[in-house]
């Protein structure tokens, strides 16, 4: 769209700016402030410079959590994106069946995150959960997600797939419905098979929504907290402790303000850098679509 040049438009943006400034800039400044000081109590703070940053970057706990976080985010992206596309392709396009599938698919997204954790905590238990019982008794595997780190990992990944694949499905579904019928008719005249239709019509048209999906899934999986906290509590040991949980442990558990603040800034910068790259790709791809 051709946009009018007018700086008065700032007046319309001002309320958002003030609100977000109150809830983002002030807290962020506090974090920066803490990250360079050692605080013993009110009025007793000492300048420590970059000491906390160095300590956090050297910290084994943080590195461990970071590695687990990257593996986790990569795993769920690799599974959720193709699965989401496949389900969206399989979903009916019209009628009551389409409405019903949409409502069913969206269901996990509306469940509070701690309840998602609770659902899987119950479902995966060997004694009272259907899922755990099935794996243990029907398949004869000694499955116990509270004791075995691999089992805990798989449970957390399966839970996340259950919880968030619907988002990818809904995005792709919207993208697919936006493809005009003429495209399919042209493909039929050219004698294109199912695979060719997908590769040369559907996939390119899904590019925009897929980027949104990847961006949202990357960001949200990188800050996952509540679900694994309820399901495994980060354990066994630290097997499923991700970045957010590690941070909350330092900040609210041990109340180590300086290290927690330094950690927060490092954490935020990582996400910011990754998101900046994603955002620029998105804008460029968006422009390509319009041309």
């Amino acid at each position: 769209m051709r946009k009018t040049e007018s700086n008065k438009a700032w007046l319309l943006v001002l309320p958002v700016f003030l609100l977000v400034a109150f809830s983002a800039i002030i807290p962020l400044m506090t974090v920066v402030n803490y990250s360079v000081q050692d605080i013993f109590g009110p009025g007793e703070a000492y300048w420590v410079g970059t000491e906390w940053f160095k300590e956090m970057l050297r910290s084994e706990d943080l590195r461990g959590a970071f590695v687990r976080q990257v593996i986790f985010s990569a795993t769920i992206l690799v599974i959720q994106i193709p699965l989401g596309i496949a389900i969206a392709l399989a979903m009916p396009a019209k009628g009551w069946a389409a409405s019903l599938s949409l409502v069913l698919v969206a269901l996990p997204l509306l469940i509070p995150w701690n309840v998602v954790g609770t659902i899987w905590q119950i479902f995966a238990r060997g004694d009272i959960g259907l899922g755990g019982w099935f794996v243990n008794d029907m398949m004869g595997i000694g499955y116990n997600y509270t004791a075995d780190s691999l089992h805990a990992w798989i449970t957390v990944v399966v839970m996340d797939i259950w919880h968030w694949t619907p988002l990818v499905v809904l995005l792709c579904y919207a993208g697919l419905r936006a493809i005009p019928d003429a495209f399919y008719q042209a493909a039929a005249i050219d004698g294109a098979g199912r695979w060719k239709v997908f590769r040369y019509i559907q996939l390119p048209k899904l590019r925009g929504v897929l980027l949104i999906a990847v961006l949202l899934r990357f960001m949200d999986s990188f800050m996952i907290y509540t679900e694994p906290f309820v399901l495994t509590g980060g354990g066994p040991g630290t097997a499923t402790t991700f970045l957010s949980q590690q941070l909350v442990k330092i900040a609210l558990g041990q109340f180590d303000l300086g290290p927690a603040a330094a950690y927060s800034i490092i954490y935020f910068l990582i996400i910011l850098a990754a998101s900046f790259v994603f955002y620029n790709i998105m804008v460029r791809v968006g422009r390509g679509d319009r041309a």
Partner: peptide, 22 residues
């Protein structure tokens, strides 16, 4: 616009402590 989006990207865990105090 990008700055607004960064707030959507900020991990809530980062903001928990300063929010509490604010």
């Amino acid at each position: 616009f990008f700055w607004l989006l960064t707030n959507r990207m900020a991990p809530p865990a980062v903001f928990v402590l300063p929010f509490f105090q604010l």
